[in-house]
Amino acid sequence: MSAVTSAAMSDAMSLDVRGLSIAARAAGGRTVPLVTDVSFRIAPGEAFGLVGESGSGKSMTALAALGLLRRGVAVTAGSVRLGGTELAGPGRAMPAGVRGRRIAMVFQDPMAGLNPAMRVGEQIAEVLRHHLRMGRAAAARRAADLLGEVGIEAPARRARDYPHTFSGGMRQRVMIAMALACEPAVLIADEPTTALDVTVQAQILDLLVRMQDERGMALLLVTHDLGVVAGTCHRLAVMYAGRLVEEGPVGEVFDAPRHPYTAALLAAAPENAMRGTAPKAIPGTVPAPGAYPPGCAFGPRCAHARPGPCDTGPVAMTESDGRRVRCARAPELALPGVPR
């Protein structure tokens, strides 16, 4: 990966998730694991897709990196580091002045991140004044510049408008401008285009890619949609039932997945239909947290599961030629990739 140009630089500013486990406290003092032993690293300039269905733990992982886990949910092991700073770990609160400045976030619903009673320019300027101690006038000018950079027409005038006067796609652009205001090293985007129309989705993804290329930041794109990952990310990790099941470069994983769940997700993607291939349903449902089957969590839904290797004890992650997979039968399987 040429995005990783210098090992020293990547160490200094990469987002490093190591052995991250997250659990919820449940009835009777029990803890229910939601995310288990997740590790990945995103280098500056690299776009990393974290893919999974609802409940897979993908959003929980992103929220942990931002220190935004809700009450009753906590990191139980591992860490999230940005350069030398530990952002999350057991019993560790997010250090001040990091969120919004060095690591920023774009949410699915842009309205949720915008104050409806405040002009958008002021909201961006507020971030600048708070984190960068900019003066009022300078912050206002910079806010308008940022709006221009994310493709909003007449930015100086639009900065004085309220969020409700923007369309969904434009609001997401405003959110991106706000997230980028302090030139963060890492941008986390959680389903940034899921609430948008298809035609707008493509524009927002293009914008994210362009902003990333210009700024050389690391991008963590959390999504359920493999079609979104395909043209946007360099690498991806697939999560299932709170664990990473596969990780590797997008092209290689899409062409020759090594985990049956990845292959099943690729086959189930509705985008397949555009080339005349019927999306194939995955039987069954995602297991609930606290009710994961023993052994491979995907085992009960897996067409390749065999008694023995797949249902006894936890299956370990194995690594070879830059790819990782958590499947006992990975070496002997030849799984189909995206249908040609």
Partner: peptide, 9 residues
């Protein structure tokens, strides 16, 4: 038939 993860959580 299992609960959906979000509901279950």
């Amino acid at each position: 038939v299992t609960l959906p993860p979000d509901t279950a959580l």
